[in-house]
Amino acid sequence: MDVTIEKHNSYNNIILKGRLDTITSIPFEKQILALIENGEINFLIDCEQLNYISSAGLRVLLLASKKVTPNGGKVVLSALQDHIREVFEISGFTAIFKIFGSHDEAVTFLN
């Protein structure tokens, strides 16, 4: 699992590559919570190369969203593979997160 964080003016771009499972969710949670502690409120999670997600990964995204929403922030996702999108649909997370087909659409929304 690789997590790449790119800081932009109005949002943080987080590229997830590989598997977001019980093990890899732990460092990812620390990274995103540290950014929120530093006052960051908008996150674009680029999921194009995310191959696997379990409930542990969903939990971190939910936690981040719950922390930034009261401050007017957003966690949005882009480019989910079909099987990953299905996990979000089953979990009811498509009602919680804005999900964009492409990275560019998500960037347009955040700007």
Binding site: S55, L62, L63, K66, T69, I90, S91, G92, A95, I96
Partner: peptide
């Protein structure tokens, strides 16, 4: 089962793993 229709403010992640497995 978790309440999957709850808004983000009140949504808790508990029970999601078993729920996914069943699905």
């Amino acid at each position: 089962s978790p309440d999957i229709n709850t808004p983000v403010e009140t949504r808790t992640p508990g029970g999601l793993g078993i729920f996914l497995a069943k699905n």
